[in-house]
Amino acid sequence: MFLYAYLLFTNMLVYHYSIIDWPFKYVKRNIIKAMQSILESFKMAINLMLDLNPLLLEIVGLSLGVSLTAVLLASVCGFFAGALLALCSFPGRQAILVILNAFMGLPPVAVGLTVYLLLSRAGPLGDWGLLFTPGAMIFAQWILVTPLIAALSRQVIEDLNVEYRELLWSLGANRLGMLLTLLWEGRLSLTTVMLAGFGRAVAEVGAVLIVGGNIVHHTRVMTTSIVLETAKGNLSQALALGIILIVIACLINAVISISKNYAERASA
């Protein structure tokens, strides 16, 4: 509301001083135009959220379902892989670390294409019939997120290990006991690691578009519908969906951070 009033006001100013600051007039007007279309998207986003449009709910639900499942699965693998890398030393460990760190930046389209080739009927896992299902999307995001979670949790566990190693040895803990204890001790930092993974999963479009196919009521998620609306030239609708995605990400982060604070206080 205030922002809108401000825009009207600046608009008037621009016209009023149009002769004096003519070199800036064009730029200013374009900025205002852009601001207005962004504002329109905000309005649209709010309307869409208040409407509880069933299609939107379905899309949001699928986005969250797919990405959360992928992150949970990736966490199970990533935490243990990270902890093992932190605690064990073996030949080739350094090479694995380098590869793992590089894989944090795996390009989603390349992962999508690889998963497509695996799951295609002409590929080795074609008989599973998973292509163009939510399962395929979970699979692709799992591949994307696991290296990130493994690499970050290795760092967390390694730091904790320096702190607790002597104590745990003196208590007579074996390797497995140490690994589990350190994972438990690092649980708060590890939730942050999971959030980073979730952010990567829920925001990517390259992989889910290829292996999911953006099928309405079935594999259409937030990011793929943004792509579709952009292709239709519905730019404000596309941006509105983007805004909703950001709002949801904020909500999830808020919930996690509140419960983290609560847990920290409880354990202190």
Binding site: S120, A122, F132, N214, V216
Partner: peptide, 19 residues
């Protein structure tokens, strides 16, 4: 009917692979 919308070239490729 579940629609996967791609370019014609890619659609033919999907058909070729049986997808």
């Amino acid at each position: 009917v579940r629609v996967v919308a791609v370019g014609t070239g890619q659609a033919l490729k999907l058909g070729e692979n049986g997808d």
